[in-house]
Design a binder for these strands. Sequence first.
DNA 1: ACCTGAACACCGTTCAAGT
DNA 2: ACCTGAACACCGTTCAAGT
Lengths: 215, 215
Amino acid sequence: MARTTDPDLVERRRRAILDAATRCFRRHGFHQSTMASICAEANLSAGALYRYFPSKADIIAAIAEEDRQMIAGILEGALTTGDLASDLREAAATLADRVARDPNGQLVAEVLSEASRDRALAARLRAVDEDARGRLSAAIARAQRAGLADPILDPIVAARLLFAGLDGLLIRTTLFGDANPATALGDFQAFVDQLLTPRTAPKPVGAASPEETLP
Amino acid sequence: MARTTDPDLVERRRRAILDAATRCFRRHGFHQSTMASICAEANLSAGALYRYFPSKADIIAAIAEEDRQMIAGILEGALTTGDLASDLREAAATLADRVARDPNGQLVAEVLSEASRDRALAARLRAVDEDARGRLSAAIARAQRAGLADPILDPIVAARLLFAGLDGLLIRTTLFGDANPATALGDFQAFVDQLLTPRTAPKPVGAASPEETLP
DNA sequence: ACCTGAACACCGTTCAAGT
DNA sequence: ACCTGAACACCGTTCAAGT
């Protein structure tokens, strides 16, 4: 007996393949990693690997989706206190920490560029992204009602800008050395503050601007 | 006679190859375009093409650099009036217009992802980028002195944020349908305004905020 | 000097054969 | 049921041979 496939083994093998592929991709990118090297890293022959994933594109897609879910999950996990700016600062710090731990690796650009060529992948990532953006947008609206975010902002536009800014900073950090991760983190926090702080807010007591301290 | 190569022919051929490759890349991306299809598009045999470019990576690098130079050029061309926010709005509109004209094509993600795998390309793009960012940073400092940009901003940080936001929006627009180009344009303009507008600026005469119109 | 296109090397994928 | 690894197809690149 044991005629049917063991679903547990299938799951373990898929996981092992994804982990092996992730290590390869972090070192060499999606398209400079060969299936042979992924097989070696996973201790499987080519034939065996293809029992668990139908193609290299499918492995890439699974890892791309996990990468985006990781980012979305960090955001969701941080939106807890109701103080939006500080929640976002925490999310950014957690993400920067995560990125710093992957020595050679920053897959954001790879993931987004892959999605631009692969409609099916783009659709999967869009689902993850829209969910996360919806949550952020709702959090911005809540912060506005609490007087913690500039009421002039359209929450939907602001959520798009925050995501775009985050992706842009992550991509540019690894590419251009615009900034190391710590500087990118600071940049993002400055961005959050400048975007959210009410433009016409009454100044906190004792924090009058220089021009106004004249008698 | 005619012993030496004709530099004019070399230049024409290189240009024709780049144009043919650009058409292929817009349709199918860098890595799904084959050299055979580029050769066909350029009406050259494989052997002939390799007289003008040493590799496919080199063709990609040349086009990637041109793409970034195009973006930088639009920015530089727009920074003329001294009214930074309106200059940036114009640059964004010009860029959106350019992007809208390339039906299938948005190479930003491809370019950035390629640079993440190709150190030499990354260095070339960094040179273009640092130059453009320096100009923008200087323009921000000028705008601050003229009272047209929030003095709290660090011009260098603000320039990085604007570039990151622009790249992020361009990439997300084509990928996620976050927004069509027109919406992305509106988003970028909202971003510019929210980033630059002085937080504590005295309001222009006659533009008092609602709370302050009470007698 | 410039070009052609068949040949080569490499890599994603398949499949006949093993246990 | 699960695996192996040689074989196949495809694509970037080269090179002997042409004009």
